[in-house]
Computed example of a mutant assay.
Amino acid sequence: MAALKRSSAQMVAEARARIEELDSESAIALHGAPDVVFVDLRDVRERQRMGYIPDSFHCPRGMLEFWVDPDSPYYKEVFGQTDKRFVFHCASGWRSALSVALLQDMGFEAAHLRDGFSGWHKAGGPMVPPVDPAP
């Protein structure tokens, strides 16, 4: 395979240099605030396997641009709340960093959880426990 022009790690580093990142402790302190929306970009199977942040809005990464764009037929009203602060997360912070940089390019301001859900869990953040897999 030919070398890539930019690696995924480089893209994440570039995104992180220009977006707002929150550490787990800061994000945990925001949880439950009426003006904050946590958005989970992970696949539904990740949420079932790992658990999730209570009251987080699930937006699969593949639908993000379409759900945020008011001109898209897939637009979700949750993203039209201009009085809310949005904090995006994935499992480790890579997908959410790229996502928030992309949203910033679209004109949608948001932050992301630097260490992802794994950091949130490790820091003792509240969570809905994993669903037991079917036997």
Rank of each mutant, 00 (worst) to 15 (best):
R85G: 00
Q104R: 15
M50Y: 13
F79K: 07
T82H: 12
E46R: 08
V100W: 02
V36H: 06
R47C: 13
W67L: 11
W94Q: 10
A17T: 01
I19S: 00
V39P: 06
P60T: 06
A110R: 01
S96R: 04
D132I: 06
H31C: 10
D69C: 08
S72I: 11
L103G: 00
S24A: 15
G32S: 12
L98Q: 08
K84M: 15
Q10F: 05
D23Y: 05
K122F: 01
E46M: 12
L22D: 02
E46Y: 09
R45F: 12
R45G: 03
E21Q: 15
C59Q: 11
D43W: 09
V12K: 04
L102D: 07
E46F: 12
L113Q: 03
A17N: 07
Y75W: 15
S8H: 03
F57V: 15
Y52I: 08
R6V: 11
A29H: 05
E65Q: 13
R49H: 09
Q104Y: 01
M63R: 12
S99V: 01
A15W: 02
P73T: 07
L102A: 14
G32K: 12
I19R: 00
S72K: 11
G116Y: 03
V68T: 14
P73G: 09
E65H: 06
L30R: 12
E14S: 11
A29E: 14
S7T: 15
P34D: 15
S24R: 02
R6W: 02
A91I: 00
H58C: 12
F86T: 02
E21W: 00
A33D: 14
G107C: 12
R6Y: 11
A33S: 15
C90D: 14
G93K: 03
Q104M: 11
D132A: 15
D83R: 03
H89T: 05
P126N: 04
A134P: 06
W120R: 01
D43Y: 08
V39F: 09
V87G: 03
L103A: 03
S99F: 01
Q10N: 06
R61A: 07
F66D: 04
E46A: 15
P34Y: 02
S56L: 09
G80K: 15
R85N: 10
C90V: 12
V128K: 01
M63V: 04
F38N: 03
V37Q: 07
M50C: 12
A29R: 15
I53P: 06
D43Q: 13
D35C: 08
D71T: 13
R18Y: 00
A2E: 06
F88W: 07
S8T: 08
Q104V: 02
H89R: 06
E109G: 04
P73L: 10
D105A: 14
D40C: 14
V78K: 10
D69W: 06
V37C: 11
V131S: 09
Y52L: 13
S92H: 07
